[in-house]
Design a protein around this nucleic acid. Structure first.
Lengths: 225, 225
DNA sequence: GCTCTTTTTTATGATTTTTTAACGCTTTTG
DNA sequence: CAAAAGCGTTAAAAAATCATAAAAAAGAGC
């Protein structure tokens, strides 16, 4: 997915220039010509990065930044014609990630954008499912049963992941086949029988009496949570 | 606790100026007058932020940055007299968090330092890996098996480093190819097979029955930790 | 230039995974 | 009750993936 950049600037030429440069660098671009609108757009579109001009007609750029930082940590690059030191410091301390003086070099701007994006990344949260001895760590792709690691094949894991994502709810045969095997395999219910057997053999204490993967006859399967 | 700043610069006047400014801003400061020493200090002292001059007598600043980024994510501000655009871009893309041209304004530098610190993540960094006779020291680029040093080629080492940094987790083929060979080599899985064979021959006691690098068929590989 | 090392490409056999097929059991339906 | 349909299990055939060796190409050092 292309990253989304929000340009907040009142000058149409600058916006056009930035749009051109950003799109060439494989960003999707949205624009706002005023501070209020910029904040609204930021809330609505959730851009990956914001390019903010300081000289806006309604709100001061630093004010926009402060309001934005009340709820968002999106990377913000401030663009400004003002080269005044105190202005820079104010913007940086208000939460800007970088401050670039106009006229700027486009390649440098793009490099600084890459830095901002690189830093923004993380939030490496581990999403885990756990119930009755079965643990599925979707982030690290690890499955354990009573603490012992279980090794699954690609298809087995894809199927289990789907069940985990909809844990507690019934998933239809059709849904499973489409998600795991692709939309042209929707008729191969036998695949499911085979792989559910495989999965049960690996994750159930007693595969004959499954407690994790329940069959909903005629409909599909369900992971108990 | 005061934050620790590491200054890597060969000019004593600059170091003195920075030390003065940084200490006034309540940093603890340590210094290095060349690249190799700077890297060693960074590994030893674990600074919160690094100020790096590009014009060093032994190693090029960008080279220092690249080496540092092999194992550390510490914020780095590059200071340079060179204002050349391609120089800036090279440094920023090599992992610098900011690029300030000398002569710089001290208050602005401090503001940019605050930004760098704000963005810094409290990352626990893996600098050495040790398990079952295999030792990998990322700061010194040294690999030993049962105490005996093993020599790896650049590609072999890059691959092993990637595995170490994600030790215990599965790394997909795609991830490995992108990180080691670049994003336009994502289809060349055969590279991986060849290099995993090479690595195993060098680091496994019995390459036929690997205990360190496990294959996750259809997915990728995993380093056991 | 030449040699030695490293990387990339090609070829082949082994291993693992996926698909297909067969059979017995249970539940539903006429 | 008997036939039909759905499910679970197992085994094999087919396909995909993997490991390894070796040749070719590219690069580094002299």
């Amino acid at each position: 997915m292309k990253p989304l950049a929000l340009v907040i600037d009142d000058e149409v030429q600058i916006r056009r220039l930035l749009r051109f440069a950003l799109e060439a660098a494989d960003y999707t671009v949205c624009e706002a010509d005023r501070g209020q609108l910029g904040l609204a757009e930021a809330a609505l579109r959730r851009p990956d990065v914001i390019l903010l001009d300081l000289g806006l007609p309604d709100l001061d750029g630093v004010e926009v930044l402060k309001r934005l930082r009340e709820w968002s940590e999106t990377s913000v690059l401030v663009l400004s014609v003002r080269d005044a030191e105190d202005q820079k410091i104010a913007a940086l301390d208000a939460g800007a990630d970088d401050y670039v003086t106009k006229p700027f070099s486009t390649p440098e701007l793009l490099a600084r954008l890459r830095v901002a994006q690189r830093r923004a990344r993380p939030a490496e949260e581990t999403t885990t499912f756990a119930h009755n001895g079965l643990q599925v760590d979707l982030t690290n792709r690890r499955v354990t049963v009573d603490g012992k690691e279980v090794s699954l094949t690609a298809t087995e894991y894809a199927l289990l992941r789907l069940l985990v994502r909809h844990a507690g709810r019934v998933i239809t045969h059709r849904q499973m086949l489409r998600e795991v095997w692709g939309s042209n395999a929707e008729e191969h219910r036998q695949y499911l029988r085979v792989y559910i057997t495989h999965l049960r053999r690996k994750i159930e204490r007693d595969p004959q009496n499954p407690v994790h993967i329940k069959t909903e006859s005629g409909i599909g399967y369900r992971l108990i949570s």
